[in-house]
Computed example of a mutant assay.
Amino acid sequence: MDPRPDLRDGMPADRPLRVVAVHAHPDDETLATGLTLAHHVEAGDEVHVVTCTLGEEGEVITPELAHLEGRGEDLAEHRRGELDRAMRALGVRHHLLGGGRPRWRDSGMAGSAAVQHPRAFAGADPEEAAAVLAQQLTALAPDLVLTYDPWGGYGHPDHVQTHRVTARAVELLGAQGAVAPRLMVVLVPASWAREDRAWLAGHVPEGVRSPAGGVARVLSPDDPYPPGVVDDAAVTHTVMDTGALPRQRAALREHPTQVTLHDGWYTLSNDIAARLPGREAYAVWPDARDRLAELQGVPS
């Protein structure tokens, strides 16, 4: 059992907690924080997800839906349906940033031409977006807010922007005299990342293909890790709950344009195998900034 505390440590114990996760695109909520969301749903807490864009630039791995790739609004509407079904599977309440339809759209991967779109989220004024989110958070009055680390996990511009906007929104709540929620950023301890690659090496059969025909690949211990994999010392809290995995898996199954689910693991459009280990890790923000900067640098 991991010695670090659960997210409810220091939280009110006499009532259900209110938890809000803020994510960039449909499926991010389940991939990055799905176990935690399911864990809190199972505990009887009130759980919400705010999604900043509808993933207009996402790659489509399902052959029968391949015609949607590159058709931003059509893909967005399809992914909205996937997201709605995934939220029901998780048992959480869902909101789009800014209301019924997102004010901003998917910016695409780093270097994509989509970042030049006038509504690209990565190019949004962070103060404007943070004010919109702060208004929604005020109405939800969360105890805990979850979002990405300052690198956005693996560097996606919208993930980085979501971290920036969410951190600023929580600051605004405090500046307005409200009781600011505890902000937690998702991290992956380096020891977990190594364990997961070793597990995958022993559990992913050779030649497993995705719906699009790609072959699942297991990264070696020597392959680079994304920036969201950090020294274990940077992690302050963990969620360890294999009992919540069925909800997470059920939600991932509702994102077939993006995720191919297997027994204990999954692949995305890059065909790299990733484990579903029944654990997620976090650090309190901005308290963790200095520690992360000391260990490996933090982007501005």
Score class of each variant (00 low, 15 high):
D232Y: 08
G152Y: 06
D27L: 06
L68N: 02
E64V: 14
R105N: 09
V47I: 05
E56K: 12
A24R: 03
D196K: 14
W199Y: 05
A293W: 10
L261V: 15
T30M: 05
T166R: 01
T30G: 02
M11W: 02
E56H: 13
E69F: 03
V188L: 14
G152K: 09
L133Q: 02
G243R: 12
C52P: 00
D14C: 09
P277E: 03
G70Q: 06
V229K: 00
G111W: 04
R119Q: 04
V160D: 08
E77L: 15
G44F: 01
D149G: 07
A175R: 12
L68W: 01
L31I: 14
A129T: 03
P246G: 05
L31C: 00
P12R: 15
G100R: 11
D290V: 04
Q135D: 07
A13K: 15
P3M: 07
L140E: 04
M11V: 13
D241G: 00
V235G: 05
V170S: 07
P3D: 03
A43N: 09
G111P: 01
Y148F: 15
A130M: 01
P211M: 05
E127T: 15
A175G: 11
E57Q: 15
L276T: 11
R182A: 10
A86W: 12
H156S: 04
F121D: 03
T147M: 06
E280Q: 08
T138W: 05
R168Y: 06
G123Y: 01
Y266F: 15
V284N: 11
T260E: 12
L187W: 01
V19G: 02
R275H: 12
A283W: 02
H40K: 07
R18E: 12
Q161D: 09
R182M: 02
V230C: 04
L187Q: 05
R4Q: 06
D45N: 02
A198Q: 13
P211E: 08
V50I: 08
D6V: 02
L200M: 04
P5Y: 10
E64I: 07
G243D: 04
A124P: 07
T147E: 03
L83C: 13
I272S: 06
A178Q: 10
Y266A: 04
R168W: 02
Y154T: 09
R101S: 07
P150N: 04
W199E: 03
V186R: 15
A212Q: 06
D2V: 14
M109P: 00
Q248S: 03
D287V: 15
V132P: 00
M87C: 14
Q176S: 14
Y266M: 14
E64F: 06
V115Y: 02
H40N: 04
E29M: 08
C52K: 00
T53I: 11
G58D: 11
I272C: 13
L172S: 12
H163K: 08
